[in-house]
Amino acid sequence: MAFAVQDSGKGPAAALRVSPHAERGGLKARERRVGWLFLAPALIAFVAVILVPFLRALGLAFTRYDLQTPVPEFIGLGNFHAILTSPEILGSFVTTAIYVVLATAGSVLLGLSWALILNQPFRGRAALRAMSLIPWVLPSTVTAFVWGWIFNSRFGVLNALLTSLGVIDYPTAWLSTSGGAMTAIVITKVWFSVPLFMSFFLAGLQSLDKEQLEAARVDGAHNLALLRDHILPHLKPVMLVVIVLGVIGNLQHFDTIFALTGGGPVRATSVLSIEVYRRAFDQWDIGMASAVGLLWVATILPAAWFYLRHLLKGA
C-alpha cells in the first residue's frame, strides 16, 4: 500500500486519515466495557454475601460475644489464647487432620481405580458410568441416613453381613466407638466423593494418547509398567488438582458428619466445622466460634492458594 501512495504522487503517510469506523479507545475497548458490565452482578453479590460477612467475623474473633455479653467487647488475642490452652479445640485440629488425610486418600485411590476400570472397553460401560454418578447426585443428608442405617447397631446391613460371615460374634455399635464413628464418616465421604474424582481421572485418561500406550506395549510394558510409567505421569496434573480440591472439600465438610455422628461419640468426630457450629449455635459463644473459624480458614488457605495458582497458571 505504501508504494501505491507514493506512486500516485500525493506524498507520504502524512496525508493518511483515520477511518471513521475506528473504535474509540482501541480495537478491544468495547469488549472490555461489556466485560465489566457482565462481571458486575457477581462482584456485587460476592462483596455483599461473602466479603462483608467474612470481614465482620474477622472482627468478632477479637471480641467476647456470648450469652452473657450481648454487645461484642474487644479482648484482643484473648480468644486465641484460650484456644491454645484448650485441649478440646486442639484435639479438633488433630481430628480434622486425621479425617482429611483418610477421606482424601480413600477418595483419590478409589476414584482412580474406578476411572481405570471405566476406561476399559466392555459391554454396559456407558450405563455403569452414568450409574456411578448417583452417590454424588444424592443429597448429602440422604447419603448420611443411608450410611447411618448401614452402620446401625441393631438393624444395620454391616452387622448382619459381618455376623453371617462369622467375622464378629455379636452386633457392634459402630457409631458409638470413636474408631467406628471415624471410619463411618470417612467411608461416607469417600462414597460421596468417588464419582466426582472418578470423572476428573476419566477425563484425564481419555486425553492420553492411545498410540503412546501401544508403543509402550510394543516396547514390552506390562499393565503395571503402563500404569507406573505412562498413565500416572500423564495424570499428574489432574492428580494435583484432585488432591487439592479433596483437601479443601474435606476441611470444609460438615453435613454428613453432623447428620451421622453430630461430632460424637463425645468428641471423636468433632472436626473444625462441627466445632465452630457447636460453639456458635449450641453455646452461643460467637466470639470464640469466630476465632476458631478464623484458624479453620487459615488451614484451608494454603491449599486454596495452591489451587488458584495452578488454575491461573493454566489459564
Partner: peptide
C-alpha cells in the same frame, strides 16, 4: 504372541513418544 515378544519394533504415525 504379544507385540513385545514378536521381535518387532514399530514406528508410529504420530511418533507416540513418551512426553514425560
Amino acid at each position: 504372541v504379544p507385540p513385545a515378544k514378536r521381535g518387532i519394533a514399530m514406528v508410529f504415525q504420530n511418533y507416540a513418544l513418551y512426553p514425560h
